Amino acid sequence: MDEAHRYLRGASGRFASARETQDGERAARLRAEGEEYLADLEALGERWPWQPWASVVREHEVVLDKLGAPLWEGLHVTRRVRPHANGIEHTAFGRVLHWTHGVVIAMRRPAEPGWTLLPVAEAALNFTPENYPGPDSPPWPDDIATTERAIERRLGGLRSWDKWEALGWGAAPDDFLLRWWPRFHGQIAAWLAKVDDANEHYPVQVNGRLVVGQRAEVLLGTLIPPTFAGWREYLRLAPASGLTFSALKDVGRSWWQRQIPANLLAASLERLVRDVVAPRVSQSPAVVAALAQDPESARAEHDKVLDFVMSKLGEAHADTWTRYTSEPGFAPVSPSCPSRQSARASSPAPGGSAAGVTMSPTPLHDALLRPLPVGLA
């Protein structure tokens, strides 16, 4: 059913993009396109036997296994298999991850302490529509006690050379993490504090500040949970952390299996310029005095103050500033500036003294100049 698969993938992709975008108009257009694909899929009728579950694409990304069975986060499949308790095999599915070598989905069975990553394109699970959720489907068994014991055994067997991935929680769905993270976060922190690997870093909150830490930091602070709420907190704390984009990206990928927004630090830099730097430069005593004495020389005085502020700004946001001035695709701070060539050509190196050096206008300059007094801007 190549046609059905094309419609399903088209609908899933459109709805997924609509959920991610911040542009309301674009989201509406994508959802409308997704509905068109769903209508085409519905028109196939019984030729595609998974029709009752097609609408799930509105809320979840749906992928297809090798035999065409749809899989998504939150799916619970049951089928009768003799060796299992009560003759029923239960399988739950977690998050869908897009890796460079293909798409994987997390999978777990009752009483298992973690989630196994299943390569979707290679998986032939032999599910039928009868195995999928319905009014008469058997419920997930009560495995809380057995799962707790299984997690305790796994944590007890982890050693200082094991990585975070060994626990099997990186792609777990939120309902699993919300149940078990509060119960085991202390033991997890104690284990990670013993991990002896210079490449392993964890998101830790120390005195309200985000730190990408290792053994010592894990003991000093509090691990940020690998939940979606924890991810949101990580993104909130990241801009003020002083951490580089690369460091934030690596931890976001390893701890949450998520990608941080490409403009995360740039957006913070824009707010910093607009709300803090611009008012302070335009109201600095040197600029105000120059404007009162000689409006013609006020511009030069303003540039000296601005250059000093920009050099200090670069110290705290060196990675963002470097990407901003060197990568054409990096999100601009000021949409009104048509080019970044002058920024690349004349911006001082972060941390360098720029006082007295005349800088060509850049998008950040543009953001700074807008609130200046009339006659100076």
Rank of each mutant, 00 (worst) to 15 (best):
G168V: 06
W161M: 06
A189E: 01
S137T: 15
I188D: 02
P141F: 08
P182E: 07
W191M: 06
G156V: 07
G156H: 09
W180Y: 15
V120D: 08
N207I: 04
A193G: 15
E165P: 00
A121L: 10
A166D: 06
R183S: 06
F176T: 05
V206T: 09
Q187I: 00
N131L: 03
R153M: 08
W169N: 02
E148K: 03
V218E: 01
W181V: 04
F184R: 05
W164Q: 07
K163M: 05
L158Y: 02
R183H: 13
Q187P: 00
S160K: 11
T147P: 10
G186D: 13
V212N: 09
P173F: 08
G213T: 10
T146K: 10
S160P: 00
P203F: 01
G213N: 10
A150D: 11
H185W: 04
W161H: 14
N199D: 12
A172Q: 04
V211I: 15
A124V: 04
K194D: 09
D143T: 12
V211C: 04
I144Y: 05
L219H: 10
W169S: 10
V218P: 02
V211F: 00
A121P: 04
A123V: 04
Q205S: 12
N199T: 10
P129F: 13
W191I: 04
E200G: 02
A150G: 06
D175H: 15
Y202T: 00
P129M: 11
V204H: 03
Q187S: 14
R153V: 14
I151H: 02
G186W: 09
S160H: 12
A216Y: 08
K194M: 11
K194N: 07
E148V: 02
L210G: 05
P139C: 10
D175K: 08
E217C: 08
G208W: 12
T128I: 11
P173Q: 07
D196V: 01
